[in-house]
Each structure stands twice: as C-alpha cells, then as structure tokens.
C-alpha cells in the first residue's frame, strides 16, 4: 500500500516549502504521494521546478485564491 502524507506549508516563505518537500522525499520511499498546500507567492513555479529537476511526478497543481495545492508522487 502506498503511503500518503500531507504537508501544511501555509505561512511558510521561500525556500521553506521546498525544503519541507525535500525533507519529505528523504524520509519517504518512492510511490509515496504528497499533498502540499502553501500560500507563498513563489511556490507555484517552485514546485514545478522541483518536480522537473528531481524527477518526481506532479499529479495536480491548483490555485484557490492565495493557496496553492499540489499533489506529488515520489519517484
């Protein structure tokens, strides 16, 4: 069964949300899905760049007002 984790990065500023993603990647195995929400302005483009560079799959990315929601599957 694959593991699911949730990261609440609301209120965190760059580079903290990406640091939290990187820590989650170090602590979890491939196949783990991460749901992360953040309201930092840089996060929407940063999470795309993080997934592209680290080779993890960005399943969904949506914006709800100031809040950016991303679903990622670790590869």
């Amino acid at each position: 069964m694959s593991n699911k984790i949730h990261i609440d990065a609301r209120g965190m500023k760059c580079p903290r949300p990406i640091i939290e993603l990187a820590k989650a990647k170090r602590r979890n195995v491939a196949g783990t899905t991460i749901h992360i929400e953040a309201d930092d302005l840089a996060f929407e483009s940063d999470v795309k760049a993080w997934c592209e560079t680290t080779g993890n799959r960005l399943d969904a990315l949506s914006r709800n007002g100031d809040l950016v929601l991303a679903d990622i599957t670790l590869q």
Partner: peptide, 11 residues
Amino acid sequence: FTIANGALALG
C-alpha cells in the same frame, strides 16, 4: 544559505 538550501532541495 537560501541558495544552498534550494540547491540541496533540488537534489
């Protein structure tokens, strides 16, 4: 340290 953390996060 901000750049270092960003780069570390990007693997």
